[in-house]
Design a protein around this nucleic acid. Structure first.
Lengths: 145, 145
DNA sequence: TATTGTTATACTCTATAACTATA
DNA sequence: TATAGTTATAGAGTATAACAATA
């Protein structure tokens, strides 16, 4: 009761926390259906837009460089990405999807988008449009943080 | 581009994934400001509504019993919750917030709701109302899964 | 027999600090 | 000196499997 969790029309902030968990759970479960952790699915999604260096990935994903090393080590061991050299900087690595990784990224992405889409299937088209607009407003106003 | 991440008016499912991450990041960061992990903040929030047995907590939080043992061990060591016996069933434990834990739960909850509230501050009141309605529809249609 | 909870084990994810190699 | 990345270490969170105590 201190959290207002019982009221069906709880405040917006509480609703957003619940929605975020619901979406995150669907994301994680669908990724698992494709033999990926949530962190791995996010990584493959970023790499779908093109190769990135370790530092770039750490920046985009919001984790430390050292955490990236482990993340890439594990997913590279499975053959989904590979480290390639960077011309002109022998310290750096460029990480790219392998052909297998590209297929995996695509099917996992489709699975996740499809599963999330089911969540909003009960809303009318007009409601979905308004929701989309609101979501765009919020995420654009607070890019990354 | 395969993910449509560049379009400002990306599809609703993609927007929801982004929103969920934004909300989750704010949740995690605010919990950390209060010296709690996200899992611990969630736990305290559930316990704000009253004591629960280990099995109940595992069910509500969607984790295995064995994971609950560790989660409760760590937070009990910090004095925020305590295990008490259950009259009539000597196998079971009832977990409750300590007075310290109650204060911690309250201030953390206020901090999180406040921080999430800032995310929607840019929307008009009418937009917020419509968003709240949509969020309630989605989360009620898919309680827990 | 079924249920409640713990222990043992293993893995992923993450952080911090110290380090190497290169710029 | 500064940057890119790795290694070492530690801890949280999670799962599975085996187990003890009790119902």
């Amino acid at each position: 009761m201190a959290t207002g969790q019982d009221e069906p029309d709880a405040d917006l902030a509480t609703g957003l926390v619940r929605l975020a968990r619901l979406v995150q759970d669907v994301f994680t479960r669908t990724a698992a259906d494709h033999d990926l952790t949530a962190a791995q699915a996010r990584l493959l999604c970023v790499l779908s837009d093109g190769p990135r260096t370790m530092s770039e990935l750490a920046g985009v994903l919001g984790v430390e460089k050292a955490a990236m090393t482990g993340l890439i080590d594990r997913i590279e061991r499975r053959g989904l990405v590979q480290r390639t050299t960077v011309a002109g900087d022998r310290r750096a690595w460029r990480v790219r999807l392998t052909p297998t990784g590209q297929k995996q990224a695509l099917t996992t992405h489709e699975g996740i988008i499809g599963a999330i889409g089911l969540l909003v299937g009960g809303l009318s088209q007009a409601q979905q449009d308004r929701l989309r607009q609101a979501v765009v407003c919020i995420t654009q106003d607070h890019q990354d943080q």
